[in-house]
Design a binder for these strands. Structure first.
Lengths: 174, 174
DNA sequence: CCCATATATATCGCATCCGATTAAATCGGA
DNA sequence: TCCGATTTAATCGGATGCGATATATATGGG
């Protein structure tokens, strides 16, 4: 198991810092900088997305994972906790508190499946569906500053990256 | 403020689902699926990275943000909490507990700057530097399943995305 | 010098994430 | 049928993120 996902092992090119001597102490030669790690780019982009969405979500009175759950349930209503978890890449330990909160807000219902009492099926209420509509006409595409083709390719590459990571992690766990 | 970052507003092309009738109930026509949101791709890729790194980080006895802090301090030692926060895209409310934990583990020192007692300067201990070396020869590049050129372009695009989002969010906040 | 303002951290409460464990229901082989 | 293994949620504790607030220090105008 290796911990770096930065491709560079030798000297780095920093296009913003080559006109004058750096004022910062140089890191040890050959070291990867934080900016070279793809994982950190994803990590920080995720923070940035969360902050960009914050204002709009506050107007809906939702958090980001709550919103994702509403979108996933809009796509297909009546999913079990596990099914919803597969789509959101989360498990019941994380999902259950979120769903309980949304139930408490009257945006969805949680009920045991009569045919298998182990499962809990989640269905949106009318208020939950209205919530989806309220958030639907909002978008951040412009804020990404990406052209449509860049946007689409980036999206595909990130999804590929995610799926490859998940597969590789599962394989290494035997 | 718009809340969707999915580019498609009309019908979707789902290349995996066009050979036979979908078994799932169709979502309302014109709806964006979760998979069309770039924010969700980033969100879930971040979860995937966290899980992929987990095993390696456990061996070091660190969490992901703790590791990031070590890397950032290795780059430049003696940073203030704010400076470190700029690089990690975090503020003192999040950073202080992490740094206190790392101090308690004896990987760094936190000391008030004598010339300005408001600031706290963070410096790695010898154990902290050894930690960086222990993690350095590990990498996840193979697990990403991306070719080097794809990897590099993806990294650049994600960084651009992040920086554009941050700028746009700051502008909208007046 | 005095005090209002600004700056840099820290604290607090809430909401995720996640590993480990628990509890309940189902399944399956003897 | 019976009982151990499996499956599905839920619970618990620890560690982030983050808005709001608090505290301590520094700064500047009168």
């Amino acid at each position: 198991m290796k911990l770096s996902d930065g491709p560079r092992t030798g000297s780095r090119g920093n296009s913003r810092d080559n006109s004058k001597a750096s004022q910062k102490p140089k890191p040890a030669a050959g070291e990867r900088r934080l900016g070279d790690f793809l994982c950190f780019a994803i990590y920080s982009a995720n923070l940035a997305f969360g902050r960009a969405y914050k204002k709009g979500l506050d107007e809906l009175g939702l958090t980001y994972p709550q919103w994702i759950a509403i979108v996933a349930l809009w796509e297909q209503d009546g999913q079990t906790v596990s099914e919803l978890g597969e789509k959101m890449f989360l498990e019941s330990n994380t999902l259950t508190p979120i769903l309980k909160k949304l139930e408490q807000m009257a945006y969805l219902r949680r009920q045991r499946d009569p045919s298998d009492e182990r499962q809990v099926r989640i269905s949106l209420t009318e208020a939950g569906r209205r919530l989806r509509e309220k958030g639907m006409h909002m978008n951040l595409v412009a804020s990404t500053g990406l052209k449509p083709d860049e946007f689409a390719r980036l999206q595909e590459n990130v999804v590929t990256l995610r799926d490859n990571l998940i597969r590789a992690t599962a394989e290494k766990a035997e």
